[in-house]
Amino acid sequence: MSWIDIGALDDIPPRGARLVRTGKGCVAVFRTGADEVFALDDACPHKGGPLSEGIVHGTSVTCPLHNRIFDFATGAAQGADSEVTRTYPAKIEAGRVLLDLSRLSGRSAA
């Protein structure tokens, strides 16, 4: 694992998200109401909606374009929808948010 320090937890609003821009597209880093962090591809696998702009509830986010709900832990859409978005390991250490983006290398540039 190669953890990258991307900023302080306080830089992300509770029940909100911030972006990490990479050469291969954006990763959305979410903070839940219970102060956990999760990271997903920002582009919704349905039609590319910016997941970082969705409403965060429990440990999932609702895509702002067509309301698919993605589970942070698995990246899978809830219910009848079958899309799965990529997840990245994320954790908090001493108030800092650490992200492991090694899975990005397998991805083609967006």
């Binding site: 990258i4 991307i6 900023g7 830089d11 992300i12 911030r18 972006l19 990490v20 821009r21 990479t22 050469g23 954006c26 880093v29 983006l101």
Partner: peptide, 8 residues
């Protein structure tokens, strides 16, 4: 963005 790593 919280962090921009697009160049790296």
């Amino acid at each position: 963005p919280l962090m921009d790593m697009s160049r790296e």
